[in-house]
């Protein structure tokens, strides 16, 4: 029902409505991806928007300089983000706790500096414009597909022994090692998987907006939003990121329309409330309280 409704929505929805849905899909893909590495293994990534930016630039460069069709460029964005994750994952995933979080924060700044520096390819600080194209509806479907794929992937992982092994890293990495689990390899796999969704979403967003610049695709605020969405919905659950993305995006739009300066305050209040009152998030809380299976 919901799938059908979402599929036919662009035929009767308003321009604003379609665009808002597209944004929700994007946030589901981003939050769901952050959940794969940070919700499951407990390695908190404070620079996950780096993969979004890497995908955006990969896609935008291929579209504007090599005239790639946008769908292919979007997939290439996923591959590009994955490549970045491979290069930095190996050294960074040896770091534990706050050190990993800070290293990821640093990665984002490095990438932003790099795209600003290589002006010939990226347009530097003045940004990169893409050829005009009206493709909001096809991009809507592509973004919906990305969100659905990330959620399905999360479901498959969480209900498998691979997912349980990722959770042992969060629960007790040393014990996991001593029990024969190759934690380094598992962390890297989770990290690579968590980079693909943001990479594709970044390239799609770049195509949709038609213009990108370093500050628009590497903002720390995007990472924070992903984190808050997952924490709100329930980290380490299948539907937590979806719930968090929908609820927070809708409430943000709602508040933003009425009180332009209040939405950041609201966001801050939600962070504090979630961390203090329900660190497991909505679904995490229900899962523990009512012994719900891992499929939620």
């Amino acid at each position: 029902m919901l799938v059908v409704a979402l599929a036919v929505y662009p035929t009767f929805g308003t321009g604003y409505g379609v665009r808002a849905m597209l944004q929700i899909f994007m946030w589901i893909a981003l939050a769901g991806s952050w959940n794969l590495i940070s919700g499951l293994t407990g390695y908190v990534s404070f620079g996950h928007v780096a993969f979004f930016g890497a995908g955006a630039y990969t896609g935008a460069i291929l579209i504007s300089k090599a005239s790639w069709p946008w769908l292919a460029a979007a997939l290439a964005g996923g591959v590009g983000a994955c490549a970045v994750a491979l290069v930095i994952g190996y050294p960074c995933l040896r770091l534990k706790g706050p050190y990993f979080a800070i290293a990821m924060l640093g990665l984002n700044e490095v990438l932003r500096a790099l795209v600003s520096y290589f002006e010939g390819l990226t347009g530097g600080g003045s940004g990169l414009s893409l050829p005009t194209l009206h493709a909001t509806v096809p991009i809507y479907y592509a973004m919906a597909g990305t969100a659905a794929t990330v959620t399905l992937l999360t479901y498959l992982i969480i209900t498998s022994r691979f997912g349980l092994r990722l959770m042992t890293i969060r629960e007790d990495e040393l014990a996991a090692e001593a029990m024969g689990i190759d934690t380094a390899r598992h962390k890297l796999y989770a990290f690579l998987l968590s980079a693909v969704g943001p990479g594709i979403a970044g390239a799609l967003a770049a195509r949709d907006q038609g213009y990108i610049e370093p500050i628009s695709v590497f903002p720390l605020a995007t990472t924070i939003t992903m984190i808050v969405m997952v924490l709100f919905g329930g980290k380490g659950t299948v539907w937590g990121p979806v719930l968090g993305a929908v609820v927070l995006f809708v409430s943000q739009e709602f508040v933003w329309a009425r009180f332009p300066y209040l939405h950041q305050l609201l966001f801050g209040a939600i962070i504090v409330a979630v961390v203090l009152l329900m660190p497991r998030g909505v679904l995490g809380l229900l899962q523990v309280k009512y012994r719900l299976p891992r499929t939620i």
Binding site: R170, L174, A175, A178
Partner: peptide
């Protein structure tokens, strides 16, 4: 060898302080 490699060779251990995976 790494701990997981040694475990796979056939050495199992428990810990002085319990190390179960609490949320599994």
């Amino acid at each position: 060898l790494k701990p997981y490699e040694i475990a796979r060779k056939g050495i199992g251990r428990t810990f002085q302080v319990i190390r179960v995976f609490p949320e599994l």
